[in-house]
Design a protein around this nucleic acid. Structure first.
Ligand SMILES: [Zn+2]
Ligand SMILES: [Zn+2]
Lengths: 362, 362
DNA sequence: CAGGCATGCCTG
DNA sequence: CAGGCATGCCTG
């Protein structure tokens, strides 16, 4: 009962966006509301002007009054306007399409060994990028034909699970408030680190935080455009991503905000990207096998060769003597297969009911 | 190099008290400094008046202007005055002495089994109290002779390691800011839950957060005084205790602030106090032994007896010889139960996929 | 409610 | 940098 109170002790995989609005209550700062309304009007204007969810902020001057900047200041100093943060927002389109310029995110094969805490590593099997918080992480883009001048690449993080897709991915409370750098977007989960390219932090009309980088043709001799990003929270951060799976939506956008192409990649940010990659790959290959032989990271100086056996998809033939047993086990086999189709919600209800039954036995 | 910046990504076992002062920078709230100075003067006065570090706040009226209350408001609304929080404070005396009233903290033997997530459990071997965050935790006190009227029991948490002993134990950022209850001390790590006794939250002259409860003689028939506390953070909380060992200093204090007795206990607050207690006890006994035989927690319901019902909901017991068969059939039973939850649509897809698989075998 | 995973981080 | 612990929390 003690933990039922709203005393900050609730936990688990939920959104904490609620926090941002209700935590700061400053009765003597009434101008806040005024600013909030003004913002809402700005947002409204954008919404009317651009049907696409992504809003390209035209000039740096406008950027200064962008909702994002305002939010950042509010996070550190004032209440966050509820219309910006405290809401479920519409799904962001996560459907990849390369478009007329054949826009794609590519991961050049990295020959260096996957150390446990490698800064970034991409798993082709899982189609997932594993990165270390705070470290530079390169992403490579290709275009078959050069897009028009002023085209940008926008990065927007989204939650992958349906339960969370309407929540905004943002930085956790701890990391946001502890950030004493002069960065202009301390609340953003993703930053772009391009000394030469123009970077802009802005929000979509619905309030999703994004960063755009001016598209540049590949450096001479290179066949793709490389941008450096930094992920400013772990995927596990409490009050932030909080262990929820996240994808990164990368869009090629014209200077009018038209989406020319879209590419979506799964990402996992942690302190040990190498460990987590191999762990997930192993689990994907042998879901139910007890981790007897734990994947060992090879000390760079040593060498090795062994490989794991994947018996989960192997086909076996079970000889069964007698019709009755065969029929029963056939039923069992079907039940086992069907069991995998049961949704988590169904299972939850089932186990809750089981508990009940156990209790009523006594 | 990226992580060397002050962008909120530093971690490890360090104090975060620095955060409270530098995070909030509000140039247009100059009155803050004034208030800060005023506070400093209040503190100064107390310091001059009472040589002992612990300051008994005389009246509730004074309590309202206590540094603690001010801090709490600042945490949520304004910069925290640096003179209150952002400093190393002198060691608090952690030497136990029972004094003339033979003041002691006692832990009556608890006969109930130590479940994994028991709310509180004391290890006599380790002389350490393991508690679950947010749950009521009783502490029992004894006095050989009744102390004078107005005597209180003060609880102050302190870090046990020398590197941290000068830091103030307080609640983590996440839990403090997420606490939307109307509690008067949302930033405090320790709360007292005494409906009948008088509770006061205050700070020592050096800024350590404490809670005092008016001492009451044991209820008739009881031989000790029981107080209920709640620990509002885990020992692991980032930006809070952050995995650093913590002790609880319990002092019996007269109404003039004189310390009549002191008792110090080690505490560990986590989500699984039972597991952590047995784990630490095991490690203390066999420090270097590999954990081969892991301590098993006994399911309370495991040995309970069945009951009779009727019809299709009858419960039967299937004797199974052999562990492996039992495990398999247990899985089967669950599968059969879950199978009933599968929707017709799911089944349709399943059988279609089965066909596919069959064909691909050939 | 116990088993056990996921994951930050401490150690050698 | 890999091994491995500590610990919140998910699963069955
Ligand atoms: Zn974070
Ligand atoms: Zn906490």
């Amino acid at each position: 009962m003690a933990t039922e109170q709203n005393d900050g002790l609730s936990d688990s995989q939920e959104s904490f966006s609620d926090f941002w609005t209700t935590t700061f209550q400053i009765p003597d700062l009434n101008d806040v509301d005024l600013e909030g309304i003004e913002l809402a009007e700005i947002v409204k204007k954008c919404e009317e002007a651009v049907p696409n969810e992504n809003v390209k902020v035209e000039t740096p001057t406008v950027l200064d009054t962008d909702v994002n900047i305002v939010k950042k200041e509010f996070v550190k100093q004032r209440p966050v306007p509820s219309q910006i943060i405290d809401k479920k927002v519409p799904f962001l389109c996560v459907e990849s399409f390369s478009g007329e310029h054949d826009f794609q995110v590519v991961f050049p094969h990295d020959k260096s060994p996957i150390t446990k805490c490698i800064h970034h590593t991409y798993s082709p099997d899982l189609k997932k990028l594993f990165a270390k918080m705070g470290e530079r992480c390169p992403l490579h883009f290709t275009c078959a034909s050069p897009p028009p001048p002023g085209t940008v690449i926008r990065a927007v993080p989204v939650f992958r699970q349906s339960e969370n897709m309407m929540d905004i991915v943002t930085r956790c409370i701890n990391h946001t408030l502890q950030d004493k750098s002069s960065h202009e977007a301390t609340s953003h989960f993703i930053r772009a680190e391009m000394p030469d390219a123009m970077v802009e932090y802005s929000n979509t009309v619905h309030g999703r935080e994004s960063v755009t980088v001016l598209y540049q043709t590949p450096d001479s001799g290179k066949e793709n455009t490389m941008l450096l990003y930094r992920f400013m929270c772990n995927s596990s951060c409490p009050t932030g991503i909080n262990r929820r799976p996240v994808s990164l939506v990368l869009t090629l956008e014209s200077d009018t905000g038209e989406v020319l192409g879209r590419s979506v990649i799964d990402i996992h940010v942690s302190s040990c990207p190498g460990r987590d990659r191999t762990g997930e790959e192993t689990k994907a290959q042998a879901p139910h096998m007890k981790k007897q032989i734990k994947k060992r990271f090879v000390n760079k100086r040593k060498h090795e060769a062994p490989k794991e056996k994947d018996d989960d998809n192997d086909l076996y033939y079970l000889p069964v003597k007698g019709r009755e047993k065969y029929e029963l086990l056939k039923k069992m086999k079907i039940a086992l297969d069907l069991e995998e189709l049961v949704t988590p919600e169904q299972k939850q209800n089932y186990y809750a009911q089981e508990e009940e039954n156990q209790r009523s036995i006594v």
